[in-house]
């Protein structure tokens, strides 16, 4: 393990995690909203926001799937040291990190009829996030919202699975946005 892995975590874990979670919760509750998160600096190629989402939500109880572009020794060591989360294939993942091209279509669990919560949350690393592009409707949105999504068809298909389906957290730099399974994309 390189010593780089030991740095870049939350300086004050309870406080930093509380602030980060609050932002993540707000974007999940209001699809289309973009927030910035601070407090952690993961090794490249993991984005700052992607790393902070992992620090906030992952621990030894949540298997993480790393897509090839994020599956480097530095990233693995950093996640292991700071969260203790085990690594796994897509079929067992609680969280998955990667670009949309890598994650789309992989066999992630979408939950079961009796436990729709047993599904993967995808942390989709993007180049940029902005409030333009696809139109969003659904819970958390007053009328409509817009968000720069990597595509539309896959998210439309995902919403049709409701109450099953995947939830998405988009990350770019220090920004986060989210798209839960309930959002209708057009």
């Amino acid at each position: 393990m390189q010593t780089d892995a030991l740095t870049g975590g939350f300086a004050d874990a309870p406080i930093d995690a509380a602030h980060a979670f609050r932002r993540i919760m707000q974007v999940m509750a209001q699809p289309g909203r973009i927030e910035t998160v601070t407090g952690g600096t993961p090794p490249a190629p993991l984005s700052q926001a992607g790393g902070i989402v992992l620090l906030t939500l992952c621990d030894p109880e949540t298997p993480v799937f790393l897509a090839p572009s994020r599956d480097t020794k530095a990233v693995r060591d950093w996640i292991t040291f700071h969260t203790g989360a085990p690594f796994c294939g897509p079929e067992e993942a609680s969280f998955a990190v990667g670009t949309w091209e890598e994650l789309n279509g992989l066999p992630f669990p979408i939950g079961t009829a009796e436990y729709p919560d047993r599904s993967t949350t995808l942390i989709v690393e993007c180049d940029r996030l902005s409030q333009d592009g696809a139109t969003l409707r659904g819970p958390g949105i007053k009328d409509t919202a817009t968000l720069s999504l990597p595509e539309r068809a896959a998210f439309q298909a995902n919403a049709k699975l409701f109450p099953l389906g995947l939830d998405h957290i988009f990350t770019a730099g220090d920004q986060v946005a989210a798209l839960p399974r309930t959002t209708k994309v057009s």
Partner: peptide
């Protein structure tokens, strides 16, 4: 403790993603 809060936070996010469940 932090691990408990993370577990609750994950449940809250799932709850928001599946309203009423």
């Amino acid at each position: 403790d932090e691990q408990t809060k993370r577990m609750i936070r994950r449940a809250i996010l799932k709850g928001l993603a599946i309203p009423g469940y």
